[in-house]
Amino acid sequence: MMLNQFLLLAAVLFCIGVYGVLTRRNGVLVLMSVELILNAVNINLVAFGAFRDNVQGDVFAIFVIAVAAAEVGVGLAMVLLMYRNRKSTDFTELDMLKG
């Protein structure tokens, strides 16, 4: 198998994730798209690990998974807080910091 087929797959996944982050308004869906991006990075890490024939890639992928789990926990808590205060999870309505 070629290295590039994995890297290009991850690149497509990354770009779909970026599209999701940019176009979605619902906070939960934005967080899901971020997961897509992190997953694309994981595929890259594991593919490079297999390519270089060492386990560093795998180890980093595991750390990324752990950090992603923490990120989802805090992110969903914030979306929940936003929903409680504003009865909406629309990220485009968050403009209180606008001058």
Partner: peptide, 14 residues
Amino acid sequence: ASAAIFILLGSDFV
């Protein structure tokens, strides 16, 4: 599917 890709790359633990 990405878990399947990891297994395909020989990283079954990941």
